[in-house]
Amino acid sequence: DFYKILGVPRSASIKDIKKAYRKLALQLHPDRNPDDPQAQEKFQDLGAAYEVLSDSEKRKQYD
Rank of each mutant, 00 (worst) to 15 (best):
D55F: 02
R10H: 08
Y21M: 03
F2R: 02
K60E: 13
H29M: 08
L28T: 09
A12L: 00
A12M: 00
A49Y: 02
D35C: 11
E41C: 12
A39H: 05
I14F: 09
Y3F: 03
V8C: 07
P34E: 06
K19Q: 08
R22S: 11
Q61F: 15
H29R: 12
D55N: 11
A49C: 04
K23M: 14
L26N: 15
I17A: 02
K19S: 15
K18W: 03
L26G: 10
Q27H: 05
I17E: 01
N33A: 07
D1Y: 11
A20N: 12
D31M: 12
L46I: 10
A20L: 01
L26T: 13
A48D: 05
L6C: 05
Y50P: 00
A48Q: 13
E57T: 10
F2L: 13
E51C: 04
Q38S: 11
K60Y: 13
Y50E: 01
F2P: 04
K18L: 06
D45C: 09
A25Q: 13
L24T: 06
S13I: 02
Y62M: 03
E51V: 07
L46W: 00
K15V: 13
K18Y: 08
Y3Q: 02
P9V: 09
R22E: 14
K42V: 09
R10S: 14
P34K: 13
F2H: 15
A48L: 11
V8M: 03
K15T: 13
A49N: 00
H29L: 07
E51Y: 03
Y3W: 02
Q61K: 15
S13M: 07
K42F: 05
K15H: 13
N33S: 11
V8E: 02
A39S: 09
V52C: 09
Y21L: 00
D35I: 06
G47V: 12
Y21H: 07
S56F: 12
L26I: 12
S13E: 12
Y62K: 01
K19H: 11
H29W: 04
P30K: 05
D1K: 02
R32N: 14
K23A: 08
V52R: 04
Q38L: 13
V8W: 00
K42E: 05
L28C: 11
S11R: 08
P30R: 06
S54F: 04
Q38H: 08
D45R: 13
A20V: 05
